[in-house]
Design a protein around this nucleic acid. Structure first.
Lengths: 336, 336
DNA sequence: CCAGCTCGATGAACTGTTTCAATGGGGAAG
DNA sequence: CTTCCCCATTGAAACAGTTCATCGAGCTGG
């Protein structure tokens, strides 16, 4: 493969000069610059990133490790991160832990070996052992969709309590007095916070916790939503509204409920969470709490860039908390 | 940062020995091995991929460049590729060209600089100029969801004509005599092939091309599907069935059709393509032509590994063509 | 008793780039 | 005419590993 030496020889200059032509052209005379560029094109020279990396000590790649690439929410996060990274001339390596702690560990050590510039991660490991290793290796990282406990690193998240409250107020305002909450894996902070917000909204309306009917779901996907919906339909006292911990669950619920001949929203109002594209695309478009996913990804990437950039010294770790937004659609509109 | 030299010094051996402990432990005595491992753990040594790469001449990463990460179909492809790559100890870098030729070019040259092991690509550039550059740089690549023209590279695709025929026969068999085809960007071979298969099925039933009513869509997404559906509903002679070039279009169609009070499948049968998860999750579950997406990704990765592996010499470029499969669901079931 | 062999370990070469101190030539200023 | 400075260019060190020819010690067989 043709290297910088070949270019130098052919152009009759030193390797240092070729390097300067590429990286600091202002130091090189016009004439030499042109000649070198001509040779580069002629030989089809492409510089080797690994050699640059070796010299620089770190790569020009940022890693993003998400929980579930099948969830469009994370795809949006990835898009946001990617666009921010690209503007800074970095590539993004998107990987999928699938909520598995060991997969997460495997990827994180791969990132460390690659000497990535930093990692954006939505941790699967509740114990924090994987992140500890990262800290120990001094790999900068930013938590995505989580609030960092200490001030050792940045985090970007969305206020899920407010999100839950938005959904709750909307439903209470529409006259609902008993609301089911289809939750998810109980260890997820998001799931707890959204519930908390809902409770808060109920409280504001003078309703107690008995107005909330929690139906646990095993996972945060469509199948789990279907499953939870079946249980919901089996209840003696059926609520008039259901709030789902995410849109995938809500889509599953909608499907089962519809098949059972229950009218949405007339007999049952549904509110989801995330506002993925498919929420708006459902036959009964889903009301959902929109998370600024792309913005979250972008902001996480920017925080990481700041932390690893030239002004890193004056960088203070931040915990950005974005605000969710209620998007009202057919699945909860009383006027139907 | 701690390097191999530090480990060597601390363990009282040479760097070569440390390298052997890591890469060819059978050459090192048990005693030395243990001592070196102890030091590695103690110092938290992580080897530098860039240095290995530099020596090896290529990285341990495989690139995957897809057209649209928002389409779950490609997410499945990525999953398949990733799992095959992981088994071979390689990482996968998934990137999204968003159908843009210039983005594609940017990513491909980034991959070349990274000296990736190879590229799996669903090309956005119909002219083939981007791929030509890749060939010129001798970067091995495998086409995904496309048939390679010559025998210079491998490709993995699904027979879309058969897929179209499967859908067509199903609809004709259910008694439909006029079928709308919601196509996509006309330059996409897939879109043409699926149409071809549909025509073929119509022909088998003694129906001419006039039984096919093509409604072009600008893109292959939900919004384009909604748009096409509106046009469909405006037609004087409305068909009794519609075949969509992919599931995203079909979901858009379903939504508009449903809002217009048209019963599916009684008044209008719908068949999609790809069988993404959300097809089964629709309120009226979508009949769809399933593409073995994950398998396609896995096979593409395996072909690439074979091409770049130790037995590369005896490697012949292959064009694997997988078979699609019809998955019948509520949206086309006559028995409703 | 020594030649030859094996095993484990060594040291140096090599990978392709960046960076920086050093160099040489040419022009301006005194 | 000399001195000084600036500009363009150079050569070599450094980055962190892998690989391979070489070497020494210990053992075996003749």
């Amino acid at each position: 493969m043709v290297g910088i030496k070949d270019v130098a020889r052919r152009a009759g200059v030193s390797v240092g000069t070729v390097s300067n032509v590429i990286n600091r052209p202002e130091l090189v005379s016009q004439e030499t610059r042109d000649r070198v560029h001509a040779v580069i094109n002629q030989l089809g020279y492409v510089r080797s990133e690994s050699a640059r990396q070796l010299r620089a000590g770190h790569s020009r790649i940022m890693a993003l490790l998400v929980l579930d690439m099948g969830n469009p929410f994370f795809v949006d996060v990835a898009r946001g991160a990617e666009s921010a990274a690209r503007e800074a001339g970095l590539g993004v390596m998107v990987c999928n832990s699938g909520q598995s702690v060991s997969e997460e560990a495997t990827y994180l050590s791969m990132f460390t070996e690659q000497r990535v510039r930093g990692v954006l991660v939505t941790p699967a490991d509740a114990t924090g052992a994987n992140l500890d290793r990262l800290r120990q290796q001094k790999v900068p990282f930013v938590l995505v969709d989580r609030v960092a406990a200490g001030s050792e690193e940045c985090s970007v998240s969305v206020d899920d309590t407010i999100g839950g409250a938005l959904a709750g107020r909307h439903l209470v305002g529409a006259g609902h007095r008993t609301i089911a909450y289809i939750s998810g894996p109980p260890h997820l902070q998001q799931v707890k916070d959204r519930r908390e917000g809902l409770l808060q909204a109920l409280g504001e309306a003078g309703l107690g916790p008995e107005a909330l009917l929690e139906i646990p779901a095993q996972r945060l996907d469509v199948a789990a939503g279907r499953d939870a919906a079946s249980r919901l339909l089996g209840l003696a006292r059926r609520p008039t509204a259901v709030f789902c911990a995410n849109d995938l669950l809500a889509l599953g619920v909608l499907q089962v409920v519809y098949a059972a001949g229950i009218a949405v929203p007339a007999d049952l109002a549904i509110v989801g969470y995330d506002d993925i594209e498919f929420a708006a695309a459902a036959v009964v478009p889903l009301t959902s709490v929109r998370q600024p996913a792309a913005e979250m990804g972008r902001m996480a990437a920017e925080l990481l860039l700041e932390e690893t950039g030239p002004d890193a010294a004056e960088h203070r770790h931040q915990h950005a908390v974005l605000l969710p937004e209620l998007v009202v659609r057919g699945s909860s509109l009383p006027g139907r």
